[in-house]
Every structure is written in structure tokens, then in C-alpha cells.
Design a protein around this nucleic acid. Structure first.
Lengths: 115, 115
DNA sequence: ACTCAATAGCCCTTATATGGTATAAAATAT
DNA sequence: ATATTTTATACCATATAAGGGCTATTGAGT
């Protein structure tokens, strides 16, 4: 399933959902803005599909009782609890396969033994 | 269940999950930044828990194959499909109960019939 | 043990979101 | 129908994120 929506369209999706939640909670934009601690303008802009900062978004979600949603983005990194030693130590960096390069030492000091 | 996390902490939660997804997909920050069309700095900042725009976030989620997550924020507004006419027409504005105020007309023109 | 790619952390400039205010349009209550 | 509240839109000044570059640190690969 491919993604046909542009980032702008996704922002509209976000904004519409926030509006739905707000109305569900019977709050007007001003209530939400005050409780969230952001400007009324921010609410209007988000709901009308314009971009914002994630910080504003988060403040709003807290008021709407939907911050936990943020935890559902990705699976947590797990280490098998049945093993004392983890199967794979979780990686902190991603390395690409190296383009096998000769080191200077090899070239200059080691005679070729292949024939 | 109350929310004990600050917005800043929530941003760290987001960043950590994005990092997990990226590593799961075997991409380094540069891969992600290029494919998403944002600066390398944006990736670094997001992953280290600093705030960003939702637009950047969305661009990143598209690359990580997790944009659909954005749809799961709120339930869609539904109209009972078994009825031709919806039970309640979905509200577009939220009005608070009015503090019952006398209108000028009433005061001046209408005699009191209550006794 | 060493090497080198990946990542972190700066700084600087530019782009854009925020906050405030004011006015107009839209929706609901009466 | 009309009054009144909610919401939309626009403008401006300020705050902050994006983008780019540069150096230091870290950690996987050999």
C-alpha cells in the first residue's frame, strides 16, 4: 500500500482529527488554546491544515487526552528477557558494507603470496 | 491514567522511536535526510529530542513507512449508515450554554404576563 | 589496536511558526 | 429573522526551526 498523500495533505488529516477530538470534548478553540498554553492562532492554523511545531501539537494532544498516541509510533526495541545475554546488542549506529579498500600497509609491506 | 511527561519528554519519546525505526530499516541519518528531503540537522535534532515542525516529521514518517500512523490519532466522525437522515448533524462549532441575557426588545416592548 | 564511517554538537543565516490584534464570515441559539 | 458566539483570515513583530558547514566524539568493522 503506497502513500499517495503529500505532506500538506497529511497535515490536513492531522488537523481534521484534532478538530474532531476538540468538538467531541465540547471545547471551543479558545478553551483548547488556553488549556494547551498555545495561541488561539495555533489552534486555528493546525485545524485548517497548516503546519506547526511538534511541541504545539503535543501540548494540544495532552489536553485532548491523546498524548499516549505518541507512544504508538514504533515498536520498542526489545531484548529477549529469557536470555541473560541479549541475542543482538541493540545497534546505535548503522554501518553500510564497506567498499573493501586496500590499506597502505598491505600494499607496501606485504609481498603478494597468491602465486 | 494521568500524563506525567512534559512536552519536552514527549519529544524525546518521539525521537527515540524515529531512531528505532531508522535503525530497523538499516538507514543512516544521511540516507533518511536525503530520502525525506530535509536537512541532516533536522534528523539529528529530532532524534535527540529537540522539537521540529510537523511537516518535517511527516516527511520522515513517509520514508520510514509509518505515515499511516497519522490516521490513528482520532476516530472518524461517523453518521449512522442505517438511517437515511443522520441522528445528529455533525457540529462545526461548539457553543457554550448562553448566560441568558435580556434582549433590549423584550425589556422595552413586552409587558410582563407572568402574574 | 586501529581505522573510518556515523553521529553529536557547535555556529551562522534564512525561512517559517508563534503570539498578538483586528476584522470579516459562518453557524447556532433565541 | 436576528443576535451572538465561534471560527477564518490577514497583518505584524518576535521566537525558533531549517539548512549548511565545520570539528569532535563514538562505535562498528577489520
Amino acid at each position: 500500500m503506497i502513500d499517495y498523500r503529500t505532506p500538506e495533505e497529511w497535515e490536513e488529516v492531522l488537523g481534521q482529527q484534532i478538530r474532531n477530538l476538540r468538538i467531541l470534548r465540547n471545547m471551543d478553540q479558545q478553551d483548547l488554546s488556553k488549556q494547551a498554553g498555545v495561541a488561539l492562532n495555533v489552534i486555528k492554523r493546525i485545524e485548517s491544515g497548516k503546519t506547526s511545531t511538534t511541541k504545539s501539537l503535543i501540548k494540544i494532544l495532552r489536553v485532548l487526552n491523546r498524548v499516549e498516541w505518541l507512544e504508538t509510533l514504533a515498536p520498542k526495541v526489545t531484548v529477549n528477557p529469557l536470555q541473560m545475554t541479549p541475542l543482538k546488542t541493540p545497534r546505535k549506529k548503522v554501518f553500510k558494507p564497506r567498499p573493501r579498500k586496500l590499506k597502505l600497509k598491505e600494499e607496501l609491506l606485504l609481498p603478494d603470496h597468491s602465486e
